[in-house]
Amino acid sequence: MRTSRDAPTRRIRAAVVGTGAIAAGSHLPALAALAAEGGLEVVAAVDVDTGAVQRFCADGGVPHGYTDLGRMLAEQRPDLVCICTPPTLHREQTVAALRAGAWVWCEKPPVPSLADFDAVEAEEGQEDDGGPYASIVFQHRFGSGARHVRRLIADGALGRPLVAHCQTTWYRDAAYYAVPWRGRWDTEGGGPAMGHGIHQTDLLLDLLGPWSEVRAMAGRLVHDVQTEDVSTALVRFGGGALATVVNSVLSPDEVSRIRIDCERATVELTHLYGHGNDNWRITPAPGVPAGEAAAWRDFGPDVPSSHLAQLRELVASMRAGQRPRSSGADGRTSLELVTALYKSAFTDTTVRAGDIGPGDPFYTALHGGAPGWAPAPATYEEASA
């Protein structure tokens, strides 16, 4: 099995699978930044569209373009594969890369179901072999702001977390859902709880730790889609804190927000698609010494949340042969909560952590076959077309 442990100082060979907007706008710039520092080189790109991969390679200075993932893996033998394709392809492509000995950095949402995630995790290398591992792109938990607040909460400086709010209220029009794979369970996996709000959900879990139960509601209020276009949930955490989670694509005043009320301070993050130190605010409770509050507000050098921030840490993990954050059980927790949110909303029940496993219909599909939410069975004419 090939890992970077056997060559900790050589340049890591990276490849990009899927050459659409997220690859060109986020992954390639992050890869190029590390390449400019000499620690990495982008050796190949893959896309089923020949013209698209040719343009991507020409614009990004990528030497080899392919339309076949298997061929690229065999010929280029990359150390790291960045998966930037629609969610329905993530499982197959991630497994192929892992079996070829490459580490994987896969765009969110990770895969369409917990069953798919567990199948991917089963293909990862053993801990004592140093990988390879598959990490999910959850870049909002990386950067100086999230790191600083995580430390303050973990160390108990702010006191016990009590109340939290997690909000992803964005706006998407009919043209957005005209893209054929959007708004469909079999191709997108889910609606805003899965495809949009999972970033803030993941950050909330990274700050507060394990959740214990969820009670949720979902609606399809505007868009003609299979999935929901709005959801709300009440989540209880293992430490006792209660949180509301709101995900929407119906909100003209777009915002992403997390607020955590602790015993000694309120921490609030307000942004849209990424955050820096200035997007965080800490309000001390009455009686907190001014000097202590000032120390809380000192975030240090500003490292914005970004693909680059996560990629740096991932590459460091590769060189050390260590499991990266946002992989394995750590990467699964957000998907498990989103799955539980859907089950709660569609079955009108409280769902507890660990409830959903093999044999549960929500384990293999986020709609769980629920009436009114599961896709309608294909007609004879549709099946024969």
Rank of each mutant, 00 (worst) to 15 (best):
H90L: 11
G60A: 09
E263K: 11
E127V: 14
E123Q: 13
A24G: 00
H165C: 05
R11H: 06
A295N: 00
L208G: 10
G331D: 03
D129F: 14
G183E: 09
S231H: 10
A218Q: 08
T3I: 08
P286H: 00
A178G: 01
H90T: 15
P377A: 04
D186A: 15
H64D: 07
G65F: 06
V249T: 13
A35D: 00
Q126R: 14
G238R: 12
S231E: 05
S326E: 10
F142M: 04
R312P: 05
L34Y: 04
C57E: 08
R147N: 10
P286V: 00
A178T: 10
T168Q: 12
T9N: 15
S384W: 13
L28Q: 03
D348I: 05
F362M: 01
L366A: 13
A35M: 01
V48I: 11
Q226P: 04
S4N: 08
G274S: 08
T333E: 15
E381T: 13
I22N: 01
A23P: 07
D330W: 07
A100E: 02
E292R: 11
A30T: 05
V222S: 08
F56K: 09
M318A: 02
E381D: 12
R141S: 14
I136V: 15
R150Y: 01
G359R: 03
G287I: 02
G156N: 04
D79I: 05
R184C: 12
L89C: 13
G219F: 14
M72R: 09
G238A: 11
L162Y: 05
L31T: 02
D206K: 13
A102Q: 02
D173W: 07
I83L: 14
V46Q: 00
D253M: 12
T3C: 04
A24N: 03
Q54M: 09
T333H: 14
G143C: 02
V249M: 01
G156I: 09
L250H: 01
D173A: 13
Q200V: 11
G300V: 12
A74L: 14
R99A: 12
D6T: 12
P371C: 11
V315S: 05
G20W: 00
A7L: 04
Y273V: 04
A293F: 02
T50Q: 12
A241M: 04
D128F: 10
Q167V: 05
G291H: 03
A320E: 08
L308W: 02
E381L: 13
N247R: 03
L221V: 14
S306P: 08
R259V: 09
W211L: 06
P301S: 08
V351D: 05
A21C: 03
S256Y: 07
Y363C: 01
A218G: 09
A295E: 11
G130F: 01
A383W: 15
G183R: 02
P78G: 00
R319D: 03
T168E: 05
D278I: 14
R71D: 04
M318H: 12
R147V: 06
M1I: 11
A21I: 10
R10W: 06
G239K: 04
R91L: 14
S306M: 09
G60K: 02
G39P: 08
P361W: 13
S251I: 06
G219H: 08
V249N: 03
Q93L: 14
D360T: 06
R264C: 09
P324A: 02
F138L: 14
A218D: 01
G159F: 05
E41M: 10
Y380M: 15
Q126W: 07
T88I: 11
P161M: 11
